[in-house]
Write a protein that binds this DNA or RNA. Structure first.
Lengths: 345, 345
DNA sequence: CTGAAAGCGCTTACAG
DNA sequence: CTGAAAGCGCTTACAG
């Protein structure tokens, strides 16, 4: 009679267990260590052994449990990325490039949507840290000092993107919004425009561009720009209505409209056209983002191009360097931007 | 002299270990089971004990390791969602709603970008299953039969969205693209339009709408629609150029342009305006999506509204029901759609 | 209400 | 090149 082993009953899995390393090992008549090596360091195995394992894996349809692997190895192969929103997001290309680059290395990306309101940053941060990701990508920067401190304390590689914070948490891949604002103003001044309206969202970075634009205009001898600011992203409709209101309201002439997004600029162009206002003759229009449609608009849109994909790739590279314990010489990358001059301004 | 305990050296963690349950337990002078209960079933604890644990957690700054928790409990609190792309994505609202709903329940969403090419579905599926998520959200459906089979075999709750597959993998939240195509055609016929151009992407669902539209038009006595199809999403620029080519090419008159996305319809409107073609008098235009700008265009855009957020919420509900082992009476939800009639058609 | 302890499915330092 | 076994940090059935 076989010895009765006391075996604890555990709750049934919510879903059927796919098989384990152990099962594959039995089928291949090797140890589970060998099966593990088959997946993680295949060149340690003789080709005969590898072949046997491969066969067993295939027969069983085994898919390694990365959760267990992460716990055992302290490497989750998970990257957490936070973006404000997925809709109409100028950050999409960064996430896309990041995801693509990392997929090749076996990493997955977990997306955290921070939303407009920053109320639940703290909770969200907990749920990110709780997953013990191998890296954290922030869009913009995390402003709450307590959160910054906690992040730094975890030691998880953290990359702030789309900005150049003065006191970085860790790594940075971004560009200067101040420089963008001032570049736009310089273009405006070169065109001889002195009466600007700037249509801006209230995000930190949009405001940085707005203020720098205004400063440079003033310094260049232009009038103080009129400002139309509203909460939330600069959408086609919001910008269009904001401009309509301004044009209805004001007696003062305007010869330039700067928008904190191409979507907004698009709405502005349509509003101006409907009012029979010539672009750029009466009013020049400059956007931000160089989105897909910018070149195809009538008139084509002068705007600022940000290479979001390049940011994503730099971020992925940083992460891989950290994963390999390589020293990072230059922990801050400024990818710059380019002013794309087209018909509208 | 203390007994020398043989302790195995393990590789150093890539990043500093945040503290463990055990450390909190020591600080609070309770067992680690109690600390675990503090987080997972707080009402099992006396308020005195809970208070002591709370203090210790705070002092230490402890954040539970969800990876270890997932392994021990077989519940990852992770939901995997796949979408073709994050840029210009009509699916964004679904993901947003899904993420928001699930965050409240402590779930995180892992995003898989499938891209246009379906080459690496298999690899992607492995990396999803490997994480042992508590649910999988597919945008559209997974076409590869082997993948469908594997998915079903895992027993992980799987939700196909944005479509109504005939032979679902598991759960479904979507609507009928055939019905959309035919509803658009009915509107066109009611307007007396008989010579349609349809600008379509090559995605499965866009094609389903396109074909159903064509069928209904024919059945209604209209001419066979002219078709302009191109790979990739229907962007402003692509649709605009496609229409420009058609209008240059053809002698035959067209009195309606149907677009598989509002972005495309937007491009079409601009192209028609530039050519001095009246909308809807000369040519009516109908889009798809009812995106943010549709109502604000000039003329405002007639289009089909899909409530992506409702889909996301249904999906979240399904997932929670499965998590609680509740029976799901109706595993397929058709959320329908609405034709929004505005000026353009 | 609380604790001791087995077990989740892997990885990897050690030893051969 | 391969295996035995400790350990990753939790959860939870059992026993009180």
């Amino acid at each position: 009679m076989p010895k009765r082993v006391r075996s604890r009953r555990r709750a049934k899995r919510a879903h059927p267990v796919s098989s384990t390393l152990e099962a594959v090992a039995r089928a291949a008549r090797v140890s589970s260590a060998t099966v593990s090596r088959f997946f993680n360091s295949p060149d340690l195995l003789s080709s005969r052994t590898a072949e046997r394992v491969r066969t067993a894996v295939q027969k069983i349809g085994y898919v390694p449990n990365l959760v267990a692997g992460a716990l055992a190895s302290s490497r989750s192969r998970l990257i957490a990325a936070t973006i404000p929103t997925v809709s109409q997001s100028i950050f999409a290309s960064t996430i896309q490039a990041l995801t693509d680059s990392l997929a090749d290395e076996g990493y997955s990306v977990m997306l955290g949507l921070t939303g407009a309101a920053d109320e639940n940053v703290q909770r969200q941060l907990q749920s990110i840290i709780g997953r013990r990701p191998d890296g954290i990508i922030l869009t913009g920067t995390m402003l709450d000092p307590a959160s910054r401190k906690q992040l730094r304390a975890t030691g998880i590689p953290t990359i702030e993107t789309w900005d150049l914070p003065k006191d970085p948490i860790d790594l940075v891949v971004g560009f200067s919004h101040e420089a963008v604002g001032s570049a736009i103003a310089q273009r405006a001044l070169a065109l001889g425009r002195r009466r600007a309206l700037i249509v801006s969202a209230t995000g930190t970075r949009a405001l940085a561009r707005r203020d720098s634009f205004a400063r440079t205009m003033l310094a260049g001898g232009a009038h103080e720009p009129v400002v139309a600011t509203f909460a939330g992203p600069t959408t086609y409709g919001r910008a269009r209505r904001a401009v309509a209101m301004q044009l209805d309201d004001r007696q003062q002439r305007i010869d330039l409209i700067v928008c904190t997004s191409d979507w907004g600029a698009h709405g502005v162009l349509d509003e101006l056209r409907q009012r029979g206002i010539g672009v750029p003759d009466d009013i020049a229009v400059i956007g931000f983002g160089d989105l897909e449609f910018a070149a195809d608009l009538t008139p084509s849109l002068t705007t600022v191009k940000i290479d979001g994909a390049v940011m994503g790739k730099h971020a992925a590279r940083f992460l891989m360097q950290r994963a390999r314990n390589q020293k990072i010489e230059q922990p801050l990358v400024d990818i710059g931007f380019s002013l794309i001059v087209r018909e509208s301004g």
